[in-house]
């Protein structure tokens, strides 16, 4: 049984996340204990609300260093929604005193969607990257998005020390944006797998099966 830690740093609808992981057979621990985070087979980083509030919470839990430690050891990390956005360099979301205060594992900034109706709230299809593991078998499914900001440009180059370019899957709401990234041990989705019904369950199963 895969042991997954859901990082508990005061953000996110963690109850649903834990239940979804349990539904697909993971052993789940909701904690910010550094030893548990280091030990886990997989680390799930949730996040809703304001980008900068999420970054601040993550820093208080020493999240950036723990994530870096895991990646250096090749251990999987999956960021979801704002927990995905914080992996970029920064966001233009308000309260920004320093626009580039993301964790910065991927280049690029998260910016406000320009569609006529924002937030993008609801189910959208994703254009999976060729060779995607996360979307294996669910290429035409719908996923639940709730966000006003997004990474509009794909991280072209991989993280330092990762040879191949990341796999970037996209979705569209007025414009094309990054819906998911798979970059070696580091991955993330802009949508909420834990709120995406059976398709979301399959995506989480695919993630668990990848390690």
């Amino acid at each position: 049984m895969k042991r997954v830690v859901v990082l508990d740093y005061g953000s996110g609808n963690v109850r649903s996340v834990v239940r979804m992981l349990e539904r697909v057979g993971a052993h789940v621990e909701l904690t910010a204990d550094p030893e548990a985070v280091r030990r886990a087979d997989g680390l799930y980083v949730p996040g809703v609300g304001n980008f900068h509030a999420c970054v601040a919470g993550l820093r208080r839990a020493d999240g950036p260093a723990l994530i870096a430690e895991r990646l250096a050891a090749g251990l999987p990390v999956l960021g979801v929604c704002v927990g995905f956005q914080v992996l970029f360099e920064g966001s233009t979301e308000h309260y920004a005193t320093d626009a580039l205060d993301g964790i910065g594992l991927w280049p690029g900034t998260v910016t406000r969607l320009t569609a006529p109706v924002v937030p993008h709230m609801g189910w959208s299809q994703v254009q999976p990257a060729s060779g995607s593991t996360l979307f294996d078998g669910i290429e035409d499914e719908w996923f639940y998005f709730v966000h006003s900001y997004a990474a509009l440009r794909a991280p072209g180059a991989g993280r330092a020390g990762v040879d191949r370019a990341p796999l970037v899957s996209t979705a569209e709401h007025g414009e094309v944006f990054v819906a998911a990234v798979e970059d070696g041990a580091l991955g993330g989705t802009q949508f909420h797998p834990e709120k995406s019904g059976d398709a979301g369950a399959t995506l989480i199963e695919n993630w668990l099966a990848s390690f």
Binding site: N13, S16, R19, H192, K195, S196, G197, D198
Partner: peptide, 30 residues
Amino acid sequence: TAEQVFIPLTVGGGVRTVADVDRLLRSGAD
């Protein structure tokens, strides 16, 4: 409901304060 249903859940009725919202979100409302 949040533990057994994997689509978004909105809860309304009697909400007046930040504390009311906090409690509903903590209970599992999206």
